[in-house]
């Protein structure tokens, strides 16, 4: 039986175990994971990845088998592909197994010290709108994942920007840079905007959304809702309490991004005045 090197890592309560035939491969693979993955000690893993011994070499390049919970995901991939696949799978599964927080499909930017969430699934225009908001003065956090803690605050994760190259190019933004202006930590959620894009829509049409319905909409975009339903409801409930919640139809991202920011500011001023 071949000797194995094992790393057990944890982030947001999820634990993964990575097994590799040699230390070098293991270190290379774990080095590509975001900094919030920390050593997990002896906690039982949610998912086990097994990068098995090279089966053969082609022109000096080593190849591996890649298994997830014993099921082969990819056969004979090279080291770089193994790192890439591991990073993708770990990120993918983190959403499902995270505890004590809600993982949501949402773009997230920071504006004037608070977070704005743009929930929505893949390919509904989150990245484009996130990029347009950044171009309009907000700070990029993520265009795909928002993490909300039990007090309803959004995590500012030091993840590399994942903006699609085509989107980044349109908005003249870097497609793979770390966020520089923001410190890791959490921020309160200022607004949750549930927007649908329609080609025929010229501008922005918004209507207020009740807090309860906003929670339902967030839940519909949750990744760990099945595994942690009560936590996800709690976290989303806490997030909406202080947030401006809107739904609507939007036109082109470039046109509507400044309008979104100004709507949020106006709404905040009105709410502030009525509270005072």
């Amino acid at each position: 039986m071949q000797a194995s090197h094992i790393a057990r890592l944890s982030a947001f309560g999820a634990v993964v175990e990575i097994t590799s035939p040699d230390r070098e491969t293991l270190e290379q693979c774990t080095a590509t994971l975001p900094g919030y993955w920390l050593k997990a000690g002896d906690r039982r893993p949610d998912v086990c990845f097994n990068i098995t011994k090279p089966t053969h070499e082609q022109e000096g390049e080593r190849h591996f088998l890649f298994q997830e919970n014993g099921i082969p995901l990819e056969f004979t991939i090279n080291g770089t592909q193994a790192q890439h696949l591991l990073a993708k799978r770990v990120d993918y599964l983190l959403g499902a197994y995270a505890r004590d927080c809600a993982f949501l499909h949402a773009g997230i930017v920071v504006h004037e010290g608070r977070a704005i969430l743009i929930p929505g699934l893949s390919h509904v225009g989150k990245s484009t709108l996130t990029a347009a908001l950044v171009q309009s003065g907000a700070h990029y956090v993520s265009d795909d994942i928002a993490v909300i803690d039990r007090s309803g605050r959004a995590y500012i994760l030091n993840r590399a920007s994942n903006l699609r190259e085509d989107v980044a190019e349109i908005f003249d933004l870097p497609s793979s840079a770390h966020t520089e202006c923001l410190h890791e930590g959490t921020l309160p959620v200022k607004a949750i905007m549930l927007l649908n894009y329609h080609k025929s829509q010229k501008s922005l049409e918004l209507s207020p959304l009740s807090k309860g319905e906003t929670v339902l909409r967030l839940i519909a975009n949750s990744m760990n809702g099945r595994h942690q339903p009560e936590t996800v409801i709690h976290c989303c409930g806490a997030a909406v309490r202080q947030a401006i919640c809107c739904e609507g139809v939007r036109g082109e991202a470039k046109t509507v991004a400044p309008l979104i920011l100004s709507h949020i500011n106006d709404k905040e001023n009105i709410d502030g005045e009525s509270t005072a």
């Binding site: 959403g95 699934l121 893949s122 390919h123 319905e213 990744m223 809702g225 099945r226």
Partner: peptide, 14 residues
């Protein structure tokens, strides 16, 4: 009463 199904990770990933 509004209602929504808690998505699986796969459902959430379309």
């Amino acid at each position: 009463v509004l209602s929504v199904m808690m998505p699986t990770r796969a459902m959430a990933a379309s």
